[in-house]
């Protein structure tokens, strides 16, 4: 039983990262029907910016781990959000009506970000400061750290905040309107460009949060770190029903738990196969994902 509980904790931790990144995929997809291949690399950029912040604060002799972490998070999230907007402006905006060409532009953006980090920072792995120990709540044999608890809780809070923003604010309403019908939204006087840009900003901010947390929790970051996680997060977004915000969260946690159980009870070598087979089965049974709504087909 202990083992099963531990695997659940493992899965929820990985799932939190998937969910945070999946939100960026799902929001952008919901609005402009783009699989933003560069989103995983935005997450990596967030992690690197966070590391720069830690280095800068250390130079300024600001040592308090909580204070430095909050500063690193806020600044990295802000800068990465702007990076996302910049990417949209340069690489995506002129191609909004070329559905496949924009995909190649996204791949170009992904390579540019990856090898930009490669050149600016390092081709090798960089290590975050070991700020938080592995102390945690005493729960018998269960290994769980306070940092894990913080990651889990704060990502849930961020997701809830995003949900409120999309469903209770004016810009959120504009986003939803855009997702349903861009032309109609424009006719209603919505500044389409600004709304798309804010979507990129929000998605990138969440990715940056995940990036800094990755550095703190796993301690190791590299310029290619966004690739595999990005692929998984995209899968999670589709699993939950792409374009759907609670769907991305559900998909993220579900994928994390599935992988954890597959590795724990079957085989780690086959866990991705297990995850993809389940994904395919779910999509065959529910072609729009778990929480996906009916959307008009557009090519």
């Amino acid at each position: 039983m202990d083992i099963a509980l531990q695997q659940l904790v493992n899965g929820l931790t990985v799932g939190a990262f998937y969910a945070l990144i999946a939100l960026g995929y799902t929001m952008v997809y919901g609005i402009i029907r783009l699989i933003n291949f560069a989103h995983g690399d935005i997450y990596a950029a967030g992690a690197f910016l966070g590391l720069s912040l830690y280095a800068l604060l250390a130079l300024l002799h600001i040592q308090n781990p909580v204070l430095t972490t909050l500063l690193a998070l806020v600044v990295s999230m802000g800068c990465t959000g702007l990076l996302g907007v910049l990417l949209y402006r340069i690489a995506y905006r002129p191609l909004l009506h070329a559905r496949l060409s924009i995909l190649i532009s996204a791949i170009g953006g992904s390579l540019t970000l990856e090898y930009g980090l490669f050149l600016i920072y390092s081709p090798s792995f960089l290590v975050y400061p070991h700020l938080f120990g592995r102390a945690g709540p005493a729960l018998g044999d269960l290994a769980i750290s306070w940092l894990q608890v913080i990651i889990f809780v704060s990502s849930l809070l961020l997701m809830a905040a995003l949900y409120v923003l999309v469903h209770r604010t004016k810009i959120g309403m504009a986003m939803r309107a855009l997702a349903i019908n861009q032309d109609a939204a424009r006719l209603m006087g919505i500044d389409v460009n600004r709304v798309i840009a804010s979507t990129f900003f929000l998605g990138s901010t969440l990715a940056a949060f995940a990036g800094v947390m990755t550095g703190l929790y796993y301690s190791q970051i590299s310029f290619l770190m966004g690739f595999l996680v990005g692929l998984k997060a995209f899968t999670a977004a589709v699993l939950g029903g792409i374009g759907n915000i609670p769907g991305a969260v559900l998909g993220g946690f579900l994928l994390g738990i599935l992988e954890s159980l597959a590795a724990g009870y079957f085989s780690s070598r086959w866990k991705d196969v297990v995850a993809f087979v389940i994904l395919i089965v779910i999509l065959v049974a529910r072609p729009r994902g778990l929480l996906g709504e009916r959307v008009v087909e557009r090519m």
């Binding site: 531990q6 899965g11 796993y218 190791q220 996680v229 724990g264 780690s268």
Partner: peptide, 11 residues
């Protein structure tokens, strides 16, 4: 390329 190996290590 992955970062979380807690599932396999729990096993």
């Amino acid at each position: 390329g992955e970062k979380d190996f807690s599932a396999i290590l729990t096993k």
